[in-house]
């Protein structure tokens, strides 16, 4: 198990252990068949850092993301947020208060427009904002969504725009940890670079922990640390 004490980030931000995977395993059973996806994974993620999790398809990256983001519970071991088992915190509360996730499949609410998607998430996660709508517009503007597109239903937006709306929604929740599953998959190079820049600022300037699952070497290279998931084990690289 890797342990990292509280310290100072290379970019000047404060670093502290925020999320710990402690001997986490996940097994799926289908009838009599059991499939071990993660096997005794242990790692400590720190605030103020941006992590890339890479690995071949089927290596368990999405499963790891699900466990770390509180969408699922490990078969054994524990996920700890600031030293406390998230099972104790409650997975719903953990997701609601402390983490936000950008899914590979975008997962926007199709009957809402871009602004509504963002403000709705802010309301659910209890973000106290003078004007949620104004904040939503700020974030969408920051991510390059033009004002006329913000009032359109998300199905009328392009894949790249939807990706950015999903990221804006995650950023709006003002959480401690941001998970992103292939966040730049639907974006062109320039837009992807912009997103990575936003994530870096979030980690380095705002002291958040950003964990990105990616196949992109460019994205991985932009992260502070890269972790390789192979045969159910998480191995730090470099």
């Amino acid at each position: 198990m890797t342990s990292t004490p509280t310290g100072t980030h290379a970019h000047g931000g404060t670093t502290a252990p925020i999320l710990e995977l402690a001997d986490v395993s996940r097994t799926y059973s289908t009838g009599s068949r059991r499939r071990v996806v993660l096997k005794s994974v242990s790692y400590i993620f720190e605030a103020g850092h941006m992590y890339a999790i890479v690995g071949p398809s089927g290596s368990g990256k999405t499963t790891l993301l699900s466990l770390a983001s509180g969408l699922d519970a490990p078969t054994s071991g524990s996920v700890r947020f600031k030293g406390r088992d998230v099972a104790e915190v409650g997975l719903g509360t953990y997701r609601n208060r402390h983490v936000a996730t950008v899914f590979q499949s975008l997962n926007l609410l199709t009957y809402m427009n871009a602004v509504q998607n963002v403000t709705s998430a802010m309301e659910i996660t209890g973000v106290r904002s003078g004007s949620r709508k104004r904040r939503a517009n700020e974030l969408l503007g920051l991510l390059g969504i033009e004002p006329e597109d913000r009032a359109r239903r998300t199905l009328q937006l392009s894949g790249g725009q939807q990706q950015r709306v999903a990221i804006a929604r995650a950023l709006a929740c003002e959480v401690d940890i941001l998970f992103a599953d292939e966040p730049t998959g639907a974006l062109d190079h320039e837009a992807a670079a912009g997103i990575i820049e936003v994530f870096q600022k979030l980690a380095h300037d705002d002291g958040k922990c950003v964990i990105v699952v990616t196949h992109s070497r460019d994205v991985a290279a932009a992260c502070d640390k890269t972790l390789v998931l192979k045969r159910g084990k998480l191995i730090p690289q470099g």
Partner: peptide
């Protein structure tokens, strides 16, 4: 179901 999943992932009760 998809919509419910999104809302649940956001921590909606």
């Amino acid at each position: 179901r998809g919509e419910l999943g999104i809302l649940l992932s956001l921590g909606e009760k």
